[in-house]
Amino acid sequence: MMNTLRSEVVRLWRPRLMIGWLGLTAAAAVLINMVMFQLVGEGGSTPPAGPGVAFPDAATLASNEGLIVGLSAAASMFGVITLAFWATATASDTSSGLIRLLVAAQPHRWRLIAGKTLALTLLTALVTTVATAVNIAAANALAPLADLSTDAWGTDLAQVAGEAWLNTFATLVVWRVIGLALAVLTRSAAAAVSIGVGYVLVVESVITAAASDLAEWLPGSTLSALAAGGNAVIDYGTAAALALGYVVVGLGLASVVLTRRDITD
């Protein structure tokens, strides 16, 4: 398994790829903070949550969580970026024909999935750290422009930032597994990204509107709640359990499909 991990890290550590992923994540962190603090600065009412984002109110921004609340507010946005990255990284193995060499060298195909999962987890930790750092910097820079009191921001900073990092990391890991599973199932980066993004932006909203009882079981809602450390709809424990379920199902499905499928690409 360590061999597959080391092999994956060599392939994934590409400057353009990493700069693209980290850059998009950083840009999303800056963007969400700009919008959050602008809305509060204008003094208007907080807009309702939309697909991929949930804006905090002024009181939340002024609390000791205000410094890092952008992470949970844009959890789905970060998630979609992560899903797209992993779907592309996984599906390109098939579209390039590289999967033939990989399976010919490592016939225990589940190890390929495990190695890729481990590599992706390491890189997701890096991305989460970048997102956290950029979010903190952006919040510090933008709060004065919104004339917002930041006196509470230093209270329990390490604990608050640590919990936010952990929740965001856990959320992105689940999005990553969904991206990997979609890519293994569809064998196409375009199809996997389209399905993933389309689901987050359209399908889950439609399902939620049509059957609100289902919302707390759906990935988007579950992962938003996980990123926020629990919310009014789904408590933290339930969100974590559901997220774990998505990981188990996603990895299990990807492993079974890759193990049983003929490599004809």
Binding site: G97, L98, R100, A104
Partner: peptide, 15 residues
């Protein structure tokens, strides 16, 4: 103990 070139070379283009 087996090496193979199967239906043309397949590599990561950016690497």
């Amino acid at each position: 103990d087996v090496g193979a070139l199967i239906e043309g070379p397949a590599f990561v283009a950016g690497l």
